[in-house]
Each structure stands twice: as structure tokens, then as C-alpha cells.
Amino acid sequence: MKFTTFSAFVGPSVVMMLLFIAFPLISVFVQSFQVTQPLYEAVEVETCTPGFLTQTCVIETRNQPVLGEDGKIVTETRWVGLQSYANVLELGRAWDAVSAGSWRALMAIDFWKALRFTLSFTLLTLPAVIALGLALAVAINNAGKRLRGPVIFVSLLPFIITPVIGALSINWLFRGDGILTALMERASGQDISMFAQAWTIEVLMMLYRVWHVAPFAAIVFYAGLQTVSSDSLESALIDGASRWQRMKYIVIPHLMPLILFVGMIHLMDSYRVFEEVVGFSSQGHVISLQWLTYDFLQPDQAGNRSISRASASAMLTMVGIVILLIPPLKRSWRDHRKAH
């Protein structure tokens, strides 16, 4: 292809990538090393607010931002180096906790608490999604021709539901005396509160994620199953291989590149777990790294937000994903080289 033709094809998407991915990323990267603050001045102010019948007036020193000539708040941007990262990681406290051997003290620090949950969420749901996806794919593949359509449709349903709505519906099923909690209470004869302690919420969140993502894995694996060579399967059958042996020695090795692909996508997605925290309003018990970033970014009622720490925490999340992706990437690189 001529270079001009090539660039005409590629150009627009490169521009889009730069505009909507690269530049914002660079801006977040830069902001994680900066702090922007308004200049404050202390003023003595009398404030009168209504009571039920009469007003209450108080005189207090108030810190007010200085307004510039243009009527805008005067702000000052400083380079602070790794200060925001240090504020997020709280390495000093973390080190104290580790050297004292206190898991509880470490889990009292937001970042490490979030990291603990994010990692366990990611690594526990990964095998479950792949196993359930494979099982679904095999089930679809073995379903009769007339049943196949409906089976695919039904198994895809969880994937179609908007994540927050899905999480909320599960929340309502189990919250308080929700239908399913009531059923469980009747079955066990005990009073059950699913949202009263961290581990039950975590289990619900993981079950929800597996339920939600498995259909995607299933569809990918189902497509892969169509390309399994029937010759090898038949010869295996003649050799007396059981169903499980055919699965283990023929089907799974054949699907391995797809399993890696699904695994990588899942690692990236679930490391950014967020909807579950919001949908289950679990932040009292369990938080994730992405939620931490969101919480820094969320303004309080007086309009303060922590943009620098949010940027630092976003960069740290990215670094975490990259580290998680190294093993599967290495493996697929090795497979790729072997194939050539």
C-alpha cells in the first residue's frame, strides 16, 4: 500500500486516539505531579442564618479565596513531585503496619484496603469466569439445533443488562428482608443480614461479576469450538478417549489462545471494578482502587476535590493493570514465537 493511502486510512483514528486517549492520559500524568490551589485570605465575617423563629448570627474567621481582576479565583499551581503518590500510598504507615506484622493496621489504610479487595476480586473471578464460560459454551454446542438459538439468547441476557442496574437488582434481592434473603432465612431458620459484614458483600459482588461476564467468555469459546477439528475428535473417540479426556487433550489446547484472550480482557476489566461498589453501596465495608479515584474526584458540598490525588491514584491503577498483564502477555508472546 502506498504511504499516502495508508496514512489516509490510519490518520483519522490516530488523531482520535491522540485527542481522546493520549492527551488526557498525559494531562492526568502531569497533574499527578502538580497541586493547584486557590490563594486564601483569612477574613472576619459575621454570618446570620435562620433559626425557626429568630436568626442566629456568628462572627468567625473564614478562609476566603482571593478573587483576581477578572473576578475569578486566583489559583497557584506548584510541582510537588511524588507528594500526591505518597499521600495515596501512605508508605510510612504501611511500613509501620507491615513491620509490626499487623494486617489490621495495613487494612486501615484506604489504598491498601482497596488493593487487597481489587486483587482478590480480580484473581478469584478469573478462573470462575473461564470455567463457567467454557461450561456454557459446551452446553450451547451440545444443545439441539432448535434449542440453540433460545439457549444462546438466555445465556447472553446477563451480559446485556447495564452493570449498575444489574448490581442494584442483586442488591435489592438481598438487602434487608429482600426476597432471596427471606428465602435463605426460611431455609436455614436463622436471621441473615447479607449487608452487615464485608465478606458476604464481597461474595455477592464476585458472584454478580461472574454471572455478568461469563456469557461474553461463553460466546467467544463457542465460536472457538466451531473450529475444533472433527477429525481429531473422531480419532480420539476411536482410541477410546472419554468425554473429559477429549476436552482436556484436544478442545482446551485448541482454545488456549482464546482462553488467554478472555483472561486478559477480564484482568483489565475487573481490576477496574467500580460498578459493584456503587451498586451494592459497599463503601463502608469494601472499596476498590477505581472507587478510590472516583471518591477523590467527587466534590464535597463546599466544592473541594482532590484532583492531584485522583490523578496519582489513576496512574497507580494503570500501573497495576500493566503488572497483572505481564504474565499472560509473556505467554502469548512465547506461543507466537514458537508458532513461527
Binding site: H285, D300, N304
Partner: peptide, 21 residues
């Protein structure tokens, strides 16, 4: 209500759960 109070309110809202649990 004030700018410092806004920050304090957020810190309280996020920090007290650890005591209650």
C-alpha cells in the same frame, strides 16, 4: 458550612465506618 467543613465532613463520612465495624 465552610470549605474546611466540607473536607471534614467527607473525612468523617469515610472514616467512621472502620470504628463501627
Amino acid at each position: 458550612g465552610s470549605a474546611p467543613m466540607g473536607i471534614m465532613h467527607t473525612a468523617l463520612g469515610n472514616g467512621i465506618a472502620a470504628y463501627l465495624t
